[in-house]
């Protein structure tokens, strides 16, 4: 084994060429690919965290919406309950009113019918009694004046007894 500067220099040259070639044709592309992958992973990580945040926000929103909907439903039910109570009361009131009115009307009708009947009866009774009296007194009463006086007296008596 001896030292030769030629071997020394040749090794340097060979190594230099190898370094240059590897750098250009192997490591350069490899490094860029590794860098790209690093970026890709970084992007995916940030994307994933963004998506997670979004999801959390969504869930929160949904929760609130659900809460809102529940509240609204409750309100609607409450409202409808109240309206139904009110309506029921109204209907009841109306029914009562109507009943009272009907009763009043009936009472009035009865009254008027009764009055009418009494009137009729009275006139009927008047004429009938006149006829009876005239038949009975045809001969007894001679003057018209005396007749009329008598009739009125009777009529008064009938009306006063009423």
């Amino acid at each position: 084994m001896s030292l030769h500067w030629e071997s020394f220099v040749m090794t340097l040259i060979a190594f230099g060429i190898l370094y240059f070639l590897l750098n250009k044709y192997a490591f350069g592309p490899l490094f860029s690919v590794m860098e790209k992958r690093r970026e890709l992973i970084q992007n995916q990580l940030s994307e994933a965290s963004a998506t997670r945040e979004q999801a959390i926000a969504f869930v929160e929103e949904q929760k609130q919406a659900l809460q809102q909907a529940r509240k609204e439903a409750h309100e609607i039910i409450e409202q409808s309950k109240q309206t139904s109570y009110k309506q029921a009361a109204e209907i009841l009131e109306q029914a009562k009113e109507q009943a009272v009115r009907l009763k009043d009307e009936a009472v009035r009708d009865i009254e008027s019918e009764k009055n009418k009947a009494v009137q009729e009866l009275r006139s009927e009774l008047g004429s009938m009694s006149v006829k009876i009296a005239s038949k009975l007194l045809e001969k007894e009463v001679s003057t018209d004046q005396a007749q009329e006086q008598l009739v009125n007296q009777y009529l008064k008596e009938v009306g006063g007894r009423q």
């Binding site: 060979a14 190898l18 044709y25 192997a26 890709l40």
Partner: peptide, 30 residues
Amino acid sequence: NIDLSIVLMLIVSCIVVFIIARLAVRNLSV
């Protein structure tokens, strides 16, 4: 004074290393 064995082996080493490296980066994929 050229040492032929060194020349030969340097060339062989360089070629082997280069082939390995090229094989590795032949189908680069992210």
